[in-house]
């Protein structure tokens, strides 16, 4: 039987959740024994090679590209998991939801105290994906099957969750892995 395939991505996140995944240390060897990584920053595969069992989503959706990637994940993965607080709630990037988009861009590219931008233009290259009006948590854009909270979820949390998921067992995280203060 071929190994189940796992894909991961970081949308509007900080890659902290991916770092946390790498933080499982030597257990990554054991993980490589039981799964095959498909599209993921970990192996730098840019697109899916085939359908995957599990997709791990870090980060919410802040621009059109995030939305396309997330929709592609939904299309190609049997199970999607929102990993970390940005995917689950929008997280820190969603703080911009309190400010209208135009004001955000103006502050970032024109009026901010440390901005040097003699042209006074907001970047408008058509190659740059359009920003969304606000940052959306993943489950507001596509159907998400599971949420794994934490900023980031610890390596042990990710490890336990992945193992439970791949073994088809219910996930019972001990209190210590769900407590963040």
């Amino acid at each position: 039987m071929s190994k189940p395939r796992v894909a991961t991505t970081s949308l509007c996140g900080c890659f902290g959740c991916h770092m946390s995944l790498l933080d499982i240390d030597e257990r990554i060897l054991a993980l490589a024994e039981i799964v095959e990584f498909d599209k993921s920053p970990i192996n730098d595969h840019k697109d899916f090679t085939q359908r995957c069992a599990v997709g791990l989503i870090e980060g919410g959706c802040a621009n059109a590209e995030n939305v396309h990637v997330l929709r592609r994940f939904r299309e190609m993965c049997d199970v999607l998991v929102s990993v970390g607080d940005c995917a689950t709630t929008g997280g820190i990037p969603a703080l911009r939801n309190l400010v209208p988009l135009g004001e955000c861009l103006h502050e970032a590219y024109v009026a901010g105290p440390s901005v040097h931008n003699p042209s006074g233009r907001v970047p408008d290259d058509p190659e740059i994906p359009l920003l969304l009006d606000k940052v959306y948590p993943a489950h507001e854009v596509v159907k998400i099957d599971f949420h794994l909270p934490g900023c980031p979820p610890s390596a042990d949390t990710l490890w336990e969750a992945l193992n439970a998921l791949l073994a088809g067992k219910p996930l019972a995280l001990p209190y210590a892995l769900l407590k963040y203060d």
Partner: peptide, 20 residues
């Protein structure tokens, strides 16, 4: 296709498109 009916990409990017 698992896409939320409540999310409309055109609507969500309309403001950015207008600014651009």
């Amino acid at each position: 296709q698992g896409r939320r009916r409540g999310f409309d990409l055109d609507v969500a990017t309309a403001e950015a498109a207008r600014i651009r």
